[in-house]
Design a binder for these strands. Structure first.
Lengths: 239, 239
DNA sequence: TGATGTGAACCCATTCACAGCC
DNA sequence: GGCTGTGAATGGGTTCACATCA
C-alpha cells in the first residue's frame, strides 16, 4: 500500500541514513522557503540565498542538504523544484499521514480546523474526548468520539501520529492510550513531560515555556541597562 | 519555609552570566515540575528525581542548576521552594511582563484568552489588528486596537515582548513594527522566518514544522519495517 | 553515607576552507 | 569564475567520574 504511484527519479539505493536532529529541524524551514520560491517562479537558488532566507549561514545549508544526497550543481546552485521534491520525499511528505487528536476542547478544535495540518499531507481522521457532552459534535469535518474508541480508530485508520490536546492532568493517560494503540509519534500540547517507552517520539509545543525563555532574555537586556533602543540597527540576518 | 523568610537573599553578587541556551530551555521544565512538587507537598528533591520527572539524566540536571548558583545541599538534594524561587528569579518571572499581541484572528484571540500566559507573570496589555472590522471588540479582557496604535501601546505600557499571530504575509510587517516600537523579544506563530536586527530575540512556534519532523521519524520507522509493536517495552524515561 | 558540584572526556553540531566540478 | 560538497577544525553540550561536603 505504498501509495502514490512510483515517481520517476527518486534514488537508486536510498541511503535512508539518519539525518542529525539539528539538521532535520531545519529541513521544514528550507522547504517552506522553497515553496515560496516556486510561487515566485524562481527556479534556481544558491546556498547563500537559501541561508539568507532561513537566517542561517551558507555552510550550514550546504551541510544540511548534503545529508539528503548531492542534489546541487556546482557553480550553479540548487534546482528549486527538484530540491523541494527531495526534501519532501525525505521527510515523508509525499504520503498522507493520518493523525488523531486527543482532546476536543478549544485547542483540539482549533487544531482540527487548522489548515496548516491538512495543507501538508496530514489529515485528521479522528478526535476523541472523555467528556461525553462533546460526543458526536463535528469538528473540522470529523465527528468527536469517546476516548474509549481511540484504540479502534488508531488501528482501523492506521494512525501513527497522535496529538495530545488535553488538559495537563489527562495528558499522560492520553499518551499511554496512544502508545498502547500503536502510535509511534506524539505531538504534545499539554504542559507536562510525557513518560513514554523508548522508541516513541514526542515533540512538545509549550507556549508558556517559550515565553519564559523570552522573559529571561528580556531580564538580561534590562539589567544590562538601557531598555530603550540599543542603537544597533543593522538589519543583516546574522543573529 | 526557611527559604525567603528572614533576609533579602537574592543578589549578593549575582553574576548574571549567560546561561547556555540548551540549559535555559530546560529551566522552565524543571520549574513546572517543581511547582507540581509543591502542590504535592514535597519539600526536598534530588537531581535524580528531578531528572526522572523531566526525562533527562541527573548529571544534566545538576549542571543546569549549577549555572544558577549552588543552591543544593550535598547529601540531601534541593529544597523545592527555594529552588523554585531561584529559577523564577533567574528567568525573570518574579516580575510581570506586559506583552502585546499582533493579529486578532482565531489564534490571536485564543492566545489572549489563554490562561497559561497570565498564570505565569505575563499579561496581555494590547491586541492590534489591521482589519478594521475587529476594532474595539474585546478579547481576553483587552480591546482590539488598530495596528497603527501598536507603537503607542508598546511605549506607553513598556512592552518588551510581542507575539505575532498574523497570517504569514503580514508577519514581517508585524515584526518590523514591533522592533521599531522598541520590543526586544518576539514570539512568532507565523510560518515564516522573520528578519530582525541583531539583538532582537525571536522564538518560533510552528505546528506544521513540528509535524513534518514527526513525519520523517514515522517514515523511518515504517521503512525499517514493522509498523507494529517493536517489542521494545522498557518504559524507563530515557528519551 | 549520600548527593551535590565540577573538571575532564566525549560527542554532536557548526563553521572554516578548499578541492572538485560546472 | 562561481558554487557545491566535504574533510578538518572549532565550539558547545552532554556525560562521566570523583572530590567535596552536609
Amino acid at each position: 500500500m505504498r501509495a502514490l504511484g512510483n515517481s520517476v527519479w527518486v534514488m537508486s539505493d536510498t541511503p535512508r541514513r539518519k539525518i542529525p536532529e539539528a539538521a532535520l529541524g531545519r529541513l521544514p524551514i528550507y522547504l517552506r522557503i522553497l515553496t515560496d520560491l516556486i510561487v515566485n517562479e524562481t527556479s534556481q537558488v544558491s546556498s547563500e540565498q537559501l541561508a539568507d532566507l532561513a537566517a542561517v549561514n551558507a555552510a550550514k545549508v550546504r551541510k544540511d542538504l548534503s545529508y539528503l544526497g548531492t542534489y546541487g550543481t556546482r557553480g550553479v546552485g540548487y534546482d528549486v523544484q527538484y530540491l523541494t521534491y527531495q526534501i519532501q520525499r525525505e521527510l515523508g511528505l509525499n504520503q498522507s499521514w493520518p493523525v488523531v487528536i486527543v482532546g476536543a476542547g478549544n485547542l483540539g478544535q482549533a487544531l482540527a480546523n487548522f489548515s496548516g495540518i491538512t495543507e501538508r499531507g496530514f489529515h485528521v481522521v479522528g478526535i476523541v474526548d472523555k467528556d461525553t457532552s462533546k460526543l458526536e459534535t463535528v469538528v473540522g469535518g470529523v465527528r468527536v468520539k469517546h476516548a474509549d474508541e481511540l484504540s479502534q480508530i488508531v488501528q482501523s485508520k492506521n494512525v501513527s501520529i497522535g496529538i495530545i490536546a488535553t488538559p495537563a492532568d489527562h495528558a499522560q493517560d492520553a499518551a499511554d492510550s496512544l502508545v498502547k494503540a500503536g502510535v509511534g509519534s506524539i505531538m504534545n500540547f499539554a504542559p507536562i513531560v510525557l513518560n513514554v517507552p523508548a522508541g516513541v517520539n514526542v515533540r512538545k509545543v509549550d507556549l508558556a515555556l517559550e515565553l519564559q525563555i523570552l522573559s529571561y532574555y528580556e531580564q538580561c537586556r534590562h539589567e544590562g541597562r538601557g531598555i530603550g533602543s540599543t542603537g544597533d540597527h543593522s538589519d543583516s540576518v546574522s543573529a
